[in-house]
Design a binder for these strands. Structure first.
Length: 646
DNA sequence: AGAAAATGTCATAGC
DNA sequence: AAGCTATGACATTTT
């Protein structure tokens, strides 16, 4: 009977925790109420199969009992436990944590005697200490179809193992519960949990230290755990592979999903052995946490979560009360919308975009890009400022100031005086020298240094269209190296280079216009030269910026493509994980139901009953109301139809 | 010779 | 108001 009790208790507790983690209230009142007089409430007294199970108290609940290690159901169970631990190691799943579960087991008279007075006081204690979760428990009491509560355990956090409402079960299960605390995950999880969670958990640990006398039996249980967990690991190879193959830091987004939880959890689980320091601590601090952690606040939740098995959603309850805003494992795992949104983003279209951008970028001459990297001198350096630039050629062919300016000469040369211009004035000191290193001048086609040597050039050269000017090839080649504006300026006898005209400050430019007796045509030309020169630079900068923007967009596209691929992989893994977890939950439910007995002593038919966990963590067994539900639904539907018709 | 790329120029808007 | 910059559109030149 002890074994049976242990099986039942463990399974029910685990399922309760499990369901509570996902916000499912499981209330077995309807099933248990009044049926099991020999049953004893876990914490509060006889004839009560209802237990408010603290998560931490349920950890390794099998401990202390001689669970047959060959029990096949245990594989499923421990696999589920493992998954739950993995989720738990996420640290901050947010679920209501009040667990109100009826535990059906029989306690011997000696056990009752051990519990002694606590039995009668438990109710009071629980009621008094349960305040944080009263609301939740009240809710659970009003659950539809919930059975009559025989007893409810609401242990206090500050109570020792048997002091507060410690029933016979608690007494005799002390070792088991202590053993539960040996699980390293809670402490390990502290690193991942919120501050409140950690504090709560640590409080429980410190307040509920376990006598060292209970150590021996727990060692065997640890061995069981190790063995069984290893089995469970083999059952979920894909999950492990998921852990090993996934970069957690990259895979886990801010929207933590169940997959993320699994990844992290599995990772933590796998690393648990590496964290050898965590296990000794927990073993030393074997504690019995309060049997109930109530309230919906995150801080209240955390201890249970730290202990918690996992958020293993039933397929039918996947849309329950998970906190979507939080990074809960369930909320995340159920957040298919995340992936849906990804799909809705039309990321597939990025392929097209990327292709377009790639094509556009490929069409760009790398040399141009390279040239554009220079801020404003790209064109000057590539065409006119280079070794073979017109300027350089002009330098070699002419000693005029114009040549010097094109080549980056600093300042307007006195050679200007030699220019065949009318109204020439010495402008040498009229404005500061021009620093070509700061300017962009892209005269790659029109310069003609020999122009200075041919002052007889007629105005016919002022045309925008610049045809070959003479039959002198040498002169022609040199003239071509002058820009059109340079030619115009020289034609108009303007003693300034285009570069000077463009780069001189506006004040100085105005002074030049006003102080040198230029004709209106010359003034117009000067203004046009300046305007066109500045606009040329602006156009070059504009094109550079455009290319930079294209490059940046290309990089962005590549980054988003990589992100999309990563998310799609995560989605697939999550789906696979969800399927596996769902199967584990189903099996666990069948296992728990199979260990329950009706009033005639027969096991519950999993086809007729189901387990549900309420928002406050209460686990209840509810009969499957297939016909009734359909009937009632049909009636309601008919009524609605009638109302609509009316 | 023609296409494509690069560059220059104009018009315009905004600061 | 003038000057300057940015940019689209178009022209011109170069490759």
């Amino acid at each position: 009977m002890q074994i049976a009790k242990k099986y039942f208790t463990e399974g029910l507790i685990q399922l309760t925790i499990l369901l509570s983690l996902i916000g499912v209230r499981v209330d077995i009142d309807s099933y248990l109420s009044g049926y099991y007089t020999p049953l004893i409430e876990i914490n509060l007294g006889p004839s009560s199969a209802y237990i408010q199970t603290p998560f931490h108290n349920l950890r390794d609940t099998l401990d202390g009992y001689s669970v047959h290690p060959k029990c096949p159901e245990l594989d499923y169970f421990f696999a589920s436990r493992r998954l739950l631990d993995e989720v738990r190691t996420l640290g901050s799943p947010r679920f209501p944590t009040q667990l109100n579960a009826w535990l059906v087991h029989q306690v011997s008279a000696t056990d009752r005697a051990d519990c002694g007075p606590s039995t009668s006081n438990n109710t009071d204690t629980s009621s008094g200490l349960e305040s944080p979760g009263d609301g939740a428990r009240d809710d659970s009491e009003h659950l539809p179809d919930s059975g009559q509560e025989v007893c409810q355990t609401t242990p206090d956090l500050g109570h020792g193992p048997c002091s507060a409402g410690a029933c016979g079960f608690l007494k005799e299960e002390n070792d088991a519960k202590v053993k539960e605390e040996e699980e390293p995950a809670p402490l390990i999880q502290l690193a991942h949990s919120s501050t409140l969670e950690q504090e709560s958990l640590l409080d429980g640990i410190t307040a509920l230290s376990d006598p060292p006398s209970h150590q021996p039996p727990t060692i065997d249980i640890d061995q069981h755990w190790t063995n069984l967990l290893s089995l469970s690991v083999t059952d979920l190879d894909d999950l492990d592979s998921l852990v090993t193959d996934t970069d957690i830091t990259s895979a886990i987004s801010q929207d933590v999903s169940l997959h993320d939880a699994m990844v992290t959890g599995a990772g933590a689980f796998g690393v648990a052995s590496e964290r050898g320091e965590a296990r000794p601590v927990t073993q030393q601090q074997r504690t019995i946490f309060p049997l109930e952690s109530t309230g919906s606040s995150h801080s209240d939740v955390s201890p249970g979560m730290a202990l918690g098995l996992a958020a293993l959603p039933f397929a039918s309850v996947c849309n329950l009360t998970g906190n979507e805003s939080s990074h809960s494992a369930l909320g995340g795992c159920l957040d298919e919308a995340v992936f849906d949104q990804i799909n809705q983003l039309g990321l597939e279209g990025l392929d097209t975009i990327d292709t377009q951008l790639m094509g556009c970028l490929e069409s760009i001459n790398p040399q141009v890009l390279e040239d554009l990297d220079s801020d404003s001198g790209l064109s000057l350096e590539s065409s006119s400022g280079g070794p073979v630039s017109p300027g350089s050629s002009e330098m070699s062919s002419s000693s005029s100031s114009y040549c010097e300016d094109e080549c980056g000469a600093t300042g307007y040369s006195s050679d200007v005086d030699s220019l065949p211009s009318k109204g020439i004035v010495d402008y040498t000191t009229t404005w500061s020298p021009v620093d070509l290193s700061e300017s962009v001048w892209h005269d790659h086609s029109y310069p003609s240094p020999a122009f200075f040597n041919q002052p007889s050039v007629t105005l016919s050269h002022k045309g925008i269209k610049e045809e070959p000017l003479s039959d002198d090839d040498g002169t022609m080649s040199e003239e071509r190296e002058l820009s059109r504006d340079e030619l115009r300026a020289r034609t108009m006898c303007i003693p300034f280079s285009v570069l000077q005209i463009v780069n001189m400050p506006v004040e100085e430019f105005l002074e030049v216009l006003d102080g040198h007796g230029f004709s209106p045509e010359q003034v117009t030309l000067l203004r046009d030269i300046r305007r066109r020169g500045k606009n040329k630079l602006a156009a070059q900068n504009c094109r550079k910026r455009k290319l930079d923007a294209i490059t940046g967009l290309q990089e962005e596209v590549e980054r988003l493509q990589a992100q999309r691929d990563r998310l799609l992989r995560d989605k697939q893994l999550t789906a696979k994980t969800m399927g596996a977890v769902g199967q584990q939950i189903k099996q666990l439910t069948r296992d728990v139901l199979a260990r329950l007995r009706d009033e005639s002593g027969h096991p519950l038919n999993p086809e007729r009953f189901t387990l549900q966990c309420g928002a406050n963590g209460r686990v209840v067994v509810q009969p499957v109301r297939r016909p009734a539900v359909s009937t009632s639904t049909g009636n309601k539907t008919d009524k609605r139809k009638k109302e609509k018709k009316q």
